[in-house]
Design a protein around this nucleic acid. Structure first.
Lengths: 188, 188
DNA sequence: CAATATACCATACAAATGTATGGTAGTCAA
DNA sequence: TTGACTACCATACATTTGTATGGTATATTG
């Protein structure tokens, strides 16, 4: 998806907010008032947002546009060495109730290293991207080109990762923290 | 919530569908066209839907109304003897991606009887109401006035409930099936 | 029976709203 | 420097859209 400029993003975010708040999109004039901009300027912005694929517009229609919503992308098993957030890895999207989907993604679990924490193979984890975490948080980390779910530990000044399955030993290797798990879901 | 008549419900459902499809509500005339009804008639229906609490209406506003959506209700611990779906028991609502929220509700887990199935205390289960289930489905059942999560078993012509925790024995008592778990969620 | 609620109609009107047109100005890359 | 893109403006216009008014008809209920 093409990048938005700051102004465009501001307008886009306002549209999202309005819909969340009112249940329907704002009119062009409502957007204009919000930013103290003229009607014509908003016309321009809407055109651009449409051109860049952020809005689907229905002509001659009051409040006739909707954000092209992608929900939260769910990444599947990530191939070693490949960038994690490659579009090829997106397996689908999940609905969210989070205000900011910015910085949030989802991941499908592979393996049984967290079963004692109630996280099973094929569960979907919703993750907030962040580079730090608290002791005992469940996190997503990059370990030797592999993405894994583990419990983050801080003990006696040491930082390491811990599985929730007695079959696995604690991991003291170097790792990169990708994010913190904020929710898990499982479909039956 | 007050009951809707058939006509009112048809109009209401159309509004929901339209929003799902277009991203914004239909105009009064669009609704009228759908049902081959006059503008005035739709005005009446909208008034009634508003009066009965199904729509929130913003005056003088194109497409200016939104369904009063409650999402999926989450029921907490149910007091013995009390009706399960009592409004007092609703702890909140979860967002859904299910087409039909009709017949779907959510329940907060109490206890540890399903830990081996990755269902922990305080998890939220999304449940589809139904009176039958397949062998090994995870179900919600009513047992002696208590609501519990268990695994539904059908074995040698017998039907019983099974915990997923070695501390608990299979339950051969009489029970009433309330529904089948279709998803579990846990927030961290 | 009368009152009330629902379900429908037609028509006129004012307000809300998208569209069209034609400008100005700044930035950035070719 | 020229062209493309973004960001802004003002104004006129046609259409979309909710609102208001005043009807008719039917079923239900006290």
């Amino acid at each position: 998806m093409e990048e938005l400029t700051k102004k465009q993003d501001a307008v886009y975010q306002f549209i999202l907010q309005s819909i969340k708040k009112n249940g329907f999109p704002p009119t062009l004039r409502e957007i204009g008032n919000k930013f103290s901009l003229s009607l014509g300027t908003i016309q321009d912005h809407i055109s651009l947002l449409k051109a860049k694929g952020y809005l689907k517009v229905k002509p001659n229609t009051a409040r006739g546009y909707e954000p092209v919503s992608h929900g939260i992308p769910v990444y599947g098993k990530v191939a070693a060495g490949k960038p994690i957030f490659a579009i090829e890895n997106i397996e689908g999207y999940v609905q969210d109730s989070y205000k900011k989907t910015e910085g949030v993604f989802a991941l499908k679990v592979t393996g049984d290293s967290m079963i004692d924490a109630g996280i099973l193979d094929r569960d979907v984890l919703i993750v907030h991207k962040q580079e730090t975490a608290e002791d005992k948080d469940i996190v997503i980390a990059l370990l030797d080109d592999e993405v894994t779910v583990k419990r983050f530990r801080r003990k006696r000044g040491k930082i390491f990762l811990e599985a929730a399955n007695e079959k696995y030993e604690p991991i003291e290797k170097e790792f990169t923290l990708i994010g913190k798990v904020i929710e898990s879901r499982r479909k039956y």
